[in-house]
Design a protein around this nucleic acid. Structure first.
Length: 885
RNA sequence: GGGAGGUUAGCUCAGCGGUAAGAGCACCUGCCUUACACGCAGGGGGUCGCGGGUUCGAAUCCCUCACCUCCCACCA
């Protein structure tokens, strides 16, 4: 693509991030093919609210989705990351209503048609925001395939699905008790009800018995008693059995309440008698059905008392009515007592107020058989949740699923494709024309009116994996990309969305819509506390990107995705990964300045290379294998960890340092520059799915990168394991060098040798071969250990000596002027000695245990012996140091 | 009431039978060593929630308890 010249000393993500997103977009790099000869990889975005703003949870999911997509794309898949947005019925409608209110308007006066127009304007106004934010994050979406849940195609899919389910008898309309949100003015599904623990009161009320006497009934909602139609007790409850066939008189109203026996009653609670209010309590509704009891609606859709509640209360808010009822009962001496009572009350998730169970005419979807198939899919392994910790939750929820209330009394959404005639005949059809035609066929005259309700937003979301690809039409996209590959989404919408997609997917396409689901945790603040506006601990991804760059934000989020865990996000960590970006930047800057005419080589063989080059290639192959394995198993945290330590530890701390003498001509080695460039090329490619911008920016500047891919790193092959590069022997030898240098540095620091002091290093190795090897590394020892001369052989009397940890038989010594150990150092050595003595004792005991020798594997025993020997050697050295001072 | 997960360094978390327990950040010491002070080198710090058990060997497996999170749930 485009290449710029100088690599600025300053690492500034802003200088290239948005530019690359634009170039990728202009070049249509992320546009998927259909049809295609390549294997498909397809991932659908969980459509965010079209008028919303992305939060860090979205950023996390998007980053993970994009890592998977970019990784597969680089592996040669025909990758599709399909973006889109959701019309989000309730919340969008609320936003538009709020806007209207600020203009002194409300939706009722505006009328439905104009209100919906306003909502579309609102949608158009905000629509671009989501894309802008996804672009900032670096999401490699195919925007030519963007969808919106309320667009023409998806609306057609929704009507098709509805009509089919209706004709199959799985969707029906009826009057049932539903969760009603008075604030929103609509029914909501069970999932949208949130239980909250509240401190309430339990009122004990005396109900007079017909023919004298009274019984005591306990209730938390006295206002509903006006709708009582019976009193129930447990069938085994001896105390009340004699009441069967008798009746009580409802206070304040005077209605006759028969007694019924039902095992749903808990005899231990209260008095063991329950007042039955069929139309305002779900239990009572069920009980009333079992006993053919009538119901009375005493609360309306605004949460106010109805005429049926009597003239005094009619029109009063339900909570005001509660007080009034209590007052009247007290006056009449029927209030026995009131106790404090902590209990759970269902609240409307969106509206926030206590829901009111009430009876209304709604549409329901019977999902039992679909749920069974969704359960079977998981049990049979056609669907996998990774991690599988949600399997049980899935099982539990789906196996006791109840009908889904899919109608909403809103205006923004998919209007239900059902029309009724003046006489009330119902015609469910894909369009008004189809409904009219059907009515005509049936000889029904008169104008048809469409059901005013809209569908639950999750109904259209449930079709997302296939509706976005053109279903119900048999499109090329559908054939190419369905079923999709992976779904990544927050575990909080497992039931709202994932389970429903699986159900509808199986029902309409016969296939699980995705083979694998990766439920992510919720992003929390640094202390692990949920982010909320009220607490003021919300981090806005756009701010974070502005401050640290998208790559750092992505790397942080992705590296925190541990299985089944929530994600604690803090700025320090992001700053740490921005520093990693800076490290990468500078490593490349170093290489560009030093490699001369060398170029990236698409293929590299280890023949003729020196140890250092063979070592870094061996490490590179291993990290490629590890990363591939971790990506494939959704261990993004571990993948990031390996990449980070490989690049910073192996590549920068060691290889680049080791390459310095070679590149400056002090200790030339064959092809160091080419290896360095080629390793950087592969490293950038390995990192690209997580840090797309930085890696593209730098990769484009590597001389010879065009040989890997002519245009972009996005399409360059993802590096894989190269077994021919791997060598345990090479890594073992390098380990000797690394440990020797490390020990030398420690010794210098421990002895307080100034950085610029002239020092002679004495080096002795027990094994000939090791000695020869170290002798060959002399120039590197000078450079890395900052010593002036190296003498091979035992250190002279009086020198400070030490053994190299982890490498038996290598001894180093520093010839220094004799000086007394200071207190600090003496203390340190004494402590180390004591610790070592303890460890030696433990190791000796273990190795002396016949049980251990007999039962532990030979390698473990051998390893223990070797370690013991090394510890004894070190102990001796330490004694010498302390004693010799 | 049922279920799931957690309790490891000051903080946030990895590790989940092999015996010296890891990372990042924070902290301490010394360094602007010719890529990087968003850096380099060195270092301190943990009886792996408590108590039992299994095992030659347990942070890792089993059990009890404690505390914390979350999900589901019709004691009015």
């Amino acid at each position: 693509m485009t290449q710029r010249d100088e690599l600025d000393k300053r690492f500034d993500p802003k200088s290239y991030e948005s530019a690359w997103q634009r170039r990728w977009s202009d070049a249509r790099i992320f546009q998927a093919e259909a049809p295609s000869g390549r294997p498909p990889f397809c991932l659908m975005i969980p459509p965010p609210n079209v008028t919303g703003k992305l939060h860090v949870g979205h950023a996390l999911q998007t980053a993970l989705q994009d890592v998977l997509t970019r990784w597969r794309r680089m592996l040669g898949y025909n990758a599709l990351f399909l973006p889109g947005t959701d019309h989000a019925g309730i919340s969008t409608q609320l936003m538009v209503e709020r806007q209207l209110a600020s203009e002194g308007l409300d939706r009722k006066t505006l009328g439905r048609e104009r209100f919906v127009e306003r909502a579309w304007q609102w949608k158009d106004l905000y629509h671009g925001n989501i894309r802008r934010q996804l672009d900032l994050l670096g999401a490699s979406c195919d925007w030519s395939r963007e969808r919106f849940t309320l667009d023409v195609g998806l609306s057609a899919a929704v009507r098709e699905a509805f009509v089919r389910l209706y004709r199959e008898g799985l969707i029906s309309r009826g009057e049932y008790l539903v969760n009603w949100s008075p604030a929103l003015g609509t029914a909501i599904s069970d999932l949208e009800v949130e239980m909250k623990t509240v401190a309430g009161k339990l009122y004990h009320v005396a109900y007079p018995l017909e023919g004298g006497g009274q019984v005591e009934v306990a209730t938390t909602r006295p206002e509903t008693m006006l709708g009582d139609t019976a009193i129930a007790f447990h069938p085994d409850d001896e105390r009340y059995r004699h009441l069967l066939g008798r009746a009580a008189i409802l206070p304040l109203v005077g209605r006759r309440l028969p007694f019924i026996a039902d095992s749903a009653v808990e005899p231990e609670f209260g008095t063991g008698l329950v007042k039955i209010t069929p139309f305002h309590d779900p239990n009572d509704f069920e009980m009333a059905r079992r006993h053919q009891l009538p119901g009375v609606s005493v609360i309306d859709q605004q949460g106010r008392m109805t005429e049926a509640a009597g003239p005094e209360l009619a029109g009063l808010d339900r909570f005001a009515a509660r007080n009034k009822v209590v007052e009247r009962l007290r006056e009449q001496g029927l209030l026995v007592r009131v106790e404090e009572h902590v209990h759970n009350v269902g609240h409307s998730q969106r509206g926030g107020e206590p829901i009111e169970p009430l009876v209304s005419l709604q549409w329901f979807c019977d999902v039992r058989t679909m749920a069974e198939r969704a359960l079977a899919a998981l049990r049979e392994g056609r669907l996998r949740l990774v991690p599988d910790s949600f399997d049980k939750t899935w099982e539990h929820w789906l196996s006791q699923i109840k009908p889904w209330c899919i109608s909403r009394q809103l205006w923004w959404g998919h209007q239900i494709p059902a029309w009724s005639s003046p006489e009330g005949r119902l015609f469910v059809a894909r369009s008004a024309e189809e409904a009219a035609a059907e009515a005509a066929r049936e000889g029904v005259a008169g104008p048809l009116t469409q059901d005013p309700d809209v569908l639950d937003t999750w109904f259209s979301a449930a079709l997302w994996p296939f509706s976005t690809l053109g279903w119900p039409e048999a499109t090329v996209d559908l054939a190419t990309f369905y079923p999709t590959s992976v779904l990544v989404t927050g575990h909080d919408i497992l039931f709202f969305w994932v389970a429903r997609m699986v159900m509808t997917g199986l029902h309409f396409t016969g296939q699980v819509p995705f083979a694998t689901v990766h439920p992510t945790g919720l992003v929390r603040d640094a202390q692990g506390i949920k982010m909320s506006k009220m607490r003021g601990n919300v981090l806005d991804p756009v701010d974070l990107i502005d401050e640290y760059g998208a790559d750092a934000v992505r790397f942080t989020l992705v590296s925190l995705d541990s299985p089944g865990r929530d994600i604690p996000l803090n700025r320090e960590q992001i700053a740490g990964y921005r520093a990693f970006g800076n490290k990468i930047w500078n490593a490349v800057r170093f290489a560009l300045a030093r490699v001369g005419e060398a170029r990236v080589e698409p293929e590299i063989e280890t023949e003729g290379l020196d140890l250092c080059e063979r070592w870094i290639l061996s490490r590179l192959s291993r990290v490629a294998a590890e990363v591939e394995e971790r990506f494939a198993t959704f261990r993004f945290d571990e993948a990031c960890n390996r990449l980070y330590h490989f690049f910073w530890g192996d590549l920068c701390d060691w290889y680049i340092e080791l390459a310095k003498p070679a590149l400056s001509g002090e200790a030339p080695r064959p092809r160091t520059g080419a290896v360095l460039l080629s390793v950087l090329d592969r490293s950038l490619r390995l990192l690209h799915p997580v840090m797309p911008f930085l890696t593209e920016e730098l990769w484009q500047r590597l001389p010879g990168h065009e040989a890997v891919h002519p245009r972009t790193i996005c399409l360059a092959p993802y590096p894989r394991r190269e077994e021919r590069w791997e060598s345990a022997e090479v890594e073992g030898r390098m380990e000797v060098l690394i440990q020797t240098v490390t020990r030398l540095r420690s010794l210098r620091a421990e002895l307080g040798v100034p950085p610029n002091a002239k020092v002679t290093l004495y080096l002795a190795a027990a094994e000939q071969e090791t000695a020869r090897f170290l002798a060959g590394q002399e120039p590197l020892l000078h450079f890395l250990g900052r010593v002036d001369s190296v003498v091979f052989g035992a250190a002279p009397e009086g020198a400070r000596r030490d053994t190299v940890a982890g490498v038996s038989g290598v001894e180093i010594g520093l010839a220094l002027e004799r000086q007394a150990l200071d207190e600090h150092e003496r203390g340190r050595l004494a402590r180390e000695l004591a610790k070592l003595a303890g460890e030696i004792a433990r190791a000796e005991q273990r190795l002396g245990d016949p049980q251990f020798l007999a039962k532990a594997p030979a390698e473990v025993v051998a390893g223990g012996r070797a370690r013991l020997a090394a510890m004894r050697e070190r102990e001796q050295r330490l004694r010498d140091s302390v004693g010799g001072a």
